[in-house]
C-alpha cells in the first residue's frame, strides 16, 4: 500500500469532492434528484475509497466503529423523534406542518431533519457493512 503514489494523490483529490457532492445531494434533494439515501451512500463511498487506498486502520481512525454504531442508531432516532415532536406539538405522527409558523416552513424543517436522519443512518450502515466485511480478511 505504500508505493501507490498516483492512487494516493488521486484519492486525496477525489475524496473532498465526493464528500462535497454528498452534502450537495443531501441538502439539495428538495430541489433536484437525490436525498438522504443517495447522499448517505455517496458519503460512505468517499470513506470506503479512503479505506481502500490508505488501509482499514487509517479509516477506522477517522470514524471509529463505536461512533458508526452510534450514528446508525442516531439517524433512525432523529427520524422517529421528529414524529414524536410533531405529536407533542399537537399534530399527527410525522405531520411536519406543526413544526413551523406556517405549513410550508414546518414542512421544510421536517423534511430537512428526516432526510438528515436517513443520510446519517444509511452512511453509517454502509460503512458498517464495509468495515465488517473488510475487517474479517485481516484476522
Amino acid at each position: 500500500m505504500t508505493h501507490n503514489l498516483i492512487l494516493r494523490v488521486v484519492a486525496k483529490l477525489l475524496i473532498p469532492i465526493i464528500i462535497l457532492f454528498a452534502f450537495y445531494v443531501q441538502f439539495h434533494g428538495d430541489f433536484g434528484p437525490g436525498g438522504g439515501f443517495q447522499a448517505g451512500v455517496i458519503f460512505s463511498a468517499a470513506l470506503i475509497l479512503y479505506a481502500l487506498v490508505f488501509g482499514l486502520d487509517a479509516a477506522e481512525k477517522i470514524i471509529p466503529r463505536w461512533l458508526l454504531h452510534l450514528l446508525a442508531a442516531l439517524g433512525l432516532v432523529l427520524y422517529a423523534g421528529v414524529g414524536v415532536v410533531t405529536m407533542m406539538l399537537g399534530g399527527n405522527y410525522l405531520e411536519y406542518g406543526v413544526l413551523g409558523s406556517t405549513q410550508v416552513s414546518g414542512q421544510h424543517l421536517g423534511i430537512l431533519l428526516i432526510e438528515l436522519g436517513v443520510g446519517v443512518t444509511v452512511a453509517a450502515v454502509m460503512l458498517i457493512f464495509f468495515f465488517s466485511f473488510a475487517g474479517r480478511s485481516r484476522s
Binding site: D30, P33, A73, V104, I114, G117, V125
Partner: peptide, 27 residues
C-alpha cells in the same frame, strides 16, 4: 410542502411513514 422535487415531497412528507420503515430496514 413547498418542495419543488415531487419525488422528495412524496417520499419524505406524504409517505413519511414508509420512509421511516425503510430506514428501520437499513438499520
Amino acid at each position: 410542502t413547498g418542495v419543488p422535487n415531487m419525488v422528495t415531497a412524496v417520499l419524505a412528507s406524504y409517505r413519511g411513514f414508509d420512509t421511516l420503515g425503510e430506514v428501520a430496514v437499513v438499520f
